[in-house]
Design a protein around this nucleic acid. Structure first.
Length: 598
DNA sequence: CAGAAACGGGG
DNA sequence: GTGTACGTTTCTG
């Protein structure tokens, strides 16, 4: 059978000791889970004597297959061994011992999560429409299409891209209010008093055990108990075919709190597409709240990347985006408003609704860009919305490397030397602003300075030379440090940036040519997402924990950047301008004859 | 003063 | 989950 579905989420399960990829998808409002058992985990091995190495691996490990493959390592063609394991956990368990084998020089691509590998190798792009061909089956492990509202399809063909743009996603925002008279909320004793919900298809309500004055009770949904409130919330999610659920700091507050209260009250938060519970995924020291097939986006994390502010409270972020003040109730007084009732309770209801409506507005403003980033990067929205921009760039590059037949570099780790080198990098040129009120200023800035330098100077580790060279004219040589970058061939990272910037110009042309407003808007978001990604590429050289970390490349970029900005200031001075402030890629200047200071 | 711990957001 | 944030501020010995 054939189905057109939009891919929302992915994981894998184990069936008969083999990994099976599960793609959580939807066809309209029908939940579809696609199964693919044809993908196997692998890594690459670098060795001097490949045949000897094959023997050694075969004698020591239980692997599915070992094959010689031609790949590129920093553009140099090399023969690697591709070692395929039966299960991702087998790979994880054996990789250290494999690395330690005498004939093994190096292992590569051993730390790429299985589901990400699948998305990249099969070119399956989350949040896009695909054509799925396969056999409908009734049940698989804990999935049962007779008991659950799902259809299970075992894929028989590779997924193909659908030309259709996915329908608009159904977004629900939510927010909890808690009665906490003794300092910060404690989920063991402080009950939930309000659950606000708002959607982009008309839901706007506050679920509570109390209600407000008669004249304004249109948005309060009154329940008999906290237990009923949570059950109502679960019902709303289940019955409205929600694709994306958003909150503000919901990874760290709302969902952990809701889970605790649900447990105390004996309620299942079985909101997952397959009826599974909420789960918390460890991300370093923090947790991320996750459901199968229901994408949870914590906007707090998104906003921290989206804009530069001194603080990221919901209030501050909302003001920045929309220029409006939010209704405010101080957190430590919420319980008083609740207990006092009357007008104060009305205010609390208004506050609860305002919070959740604002959260939805922020989601509607920022999710389109994140959806486009998700499609460009090719990883799940859940992950992309929680990645630092450098990580986004890295996963994008890992996928590009796969298509360029490049083996990706290993992470070097933030060791002391790397960290020190990174800190040593001078950064952009800054001229401290001249004090005072300035009028009639002119502004100058470079368009995408760092990406342009990377491309024009071909700054990439695969074309970099540290020693002496015969033909200096074949190289771009950085100011200050004399780092050499071969002009030909184009380096891996410059080529990727070049490609995506060309894609950006193509989209911009298409945008100009279009006379459909909706299409124009969508294209505009796409080109913005690409611009963001391109501007982040510099970062991947500058931070030691990234795979393409190269402090030489980072140093070269900033040194050229300083040279360009300084020379343009100088040029401006020749025409009678005087820079009163400069930072990295631009400056402000006054028109004035050179004064005594110079 | 250096290294450890806390913080952010949320109520 | 083929895993273990992060950069900055405040506290403590």
């Amino acid at each position: 059978m054939q189905r057109n579905v939009v891919i929302l989420d992915i994981d894998y399960v184990t069936y008969e000791n083999k990994p099976v990829i599960r793609l959580f998808s939807k066809d309209g409002d029908k939940n579809i889970i696609l199964l693919d058992d044809t993908f196997e985990p692998y890594l690459y091995v670098m060795a001097d004597d490949l045949d000897k190495c094959i023997d050694e691996i075969q004698n020591n490990f239980d692997v599915v297959c070992i094959e010689k493959v031609n790949k590129k390592d920093f553009q140099i063609e090399k023969e690697f061994l591709k070692v395929t394991f039966n299960h991702p956990q087998e790979l994880a368990k054996n990789r250290d011992a494999l690395r330690d084998l005498e004939s093994v020089v190096q292992i590569r691509e051993f730390d790429i999560p299985f589901y990400r590998r699948y998305l990249m190798d099969r070119d399956v792009i989350p949040m896009t429409e695909v054509v799925a061909i396969g056999d409908k089956i009734d049940s698989f492990l804990d999935l049962d299409s007779n008991k659950q509202d799902i259809e299970i399809i075992k894929l028989t063909d590779e997924l193909k891209r659908s030309p259709d743009y996915p329908r608009e996603f159904r977004i629900l925002s939510f927010d909890l209010e808690v009665r906490n008279p003794h300092g910060m909320p404690n989920s063991e004793i402080d009950e939930i008093i309000m659950i606000g919900v708002s959607s982009n298809f008309g839901i706007n309500q506050v679920i509570s055990t109390k209600t407000n004055s008669d004249c304004r009770d249109d948005f309060v949904n009154q329940m008999n108990s906290e237990k009923e409130m949570i059950e109502e919330f679960v019902k709303i999610i289940k019955e409205n075919n929600i694709d994306i659920i958003v909150g503000y700091n919901s990874d760290n507050f709302d969902f952990p709190y809701l889970k605790d209260r649900a447990k105390i009250l004996g309620i299942d938060l079985d909101i997952g597409m397959d009826g599974s519970d909420i789960r918390f995924i460890r991300r370093g020291y923090a947790n991320a709240a996750s459901f199968k097939g229901l994408i949870h986006v914590d906007l707090y994390l998104v906003m921290r990347r989206y804009m530069t502010l001194e603080r990221y409270t919901l209030e501050r972020v909302y003001y920045e985006l929309f220029g409006e003040e939010k209704i405010d109730v101080p957190g430590d007084r919420i319980w008083e408003f609740w207990d006092n009732g009357g007008e104060e309770l009305d205010n609390l209801f208004d506050y609860s609704l305002d919070d959740v409506v604002s959260t939805l507005k922020i989601a509607e403003q920022t999710l389109p860009l994140n959806l486009e980033l998700t499609r460009i990067i090719g990883q799940p929205l859940f992950d992309v919305s929680r990645m630092a921009t450098g990580q986004q760039a890295e996963w994008f590059l890992v996928k590009q490397a796969y298509f360029d037949n490049e083996v990706v570099p290993n992470k070097q780790g933030a060791n002391f030397a790397n960290r020190a080198a990174a800190e040593d990098n001078e950064g952009g040129y800054v001229r401290e602003p001249e004090k005072g009120l300035h009028e009639n200023l002119v502004q100058f800035d470079f368009r995408s300075l760092y990406p342009s330098i990377i491309i024009s100077k071909n700054i990439s580790p695969d074309v970099m030379y540290l020693g002496d060279v015969d033909n200096e004219e074949d190289y771009n040589i950085s100011p200050e440090h004399g780092l050499k970058f071969k002009k030909e061939p184009q380096g891996f990272i410059p080529s990727v940036i070049d490609k995506i910037l060309q894609e950006r110009f193509r989209i911009k042309r298409e945008m100009k040519a279009s006379d459909d407003d909706t299409e124009k808007k969508a294209l505009n978001v796409q080109q913005q997402a690409i611009k963001r990604l391109a501007n982040t590429m510099y970062g991947i050289y500058g931070f030691p924990r990234f795979r393409w970390y190269s402090f030489e490349c980072a140093k070269a970029i900033t040194s050229w950047g300083r040279q360009y900005i300084k020379s343009s200031i100088k040029k401006a001075e020749e025409y009678g301008f005087y820079a009163i402030y400069a930072d990295t890629d631009g400056f402000y200047a006054k028109y004035k004859k050179k004064d005594k200071r110079n």
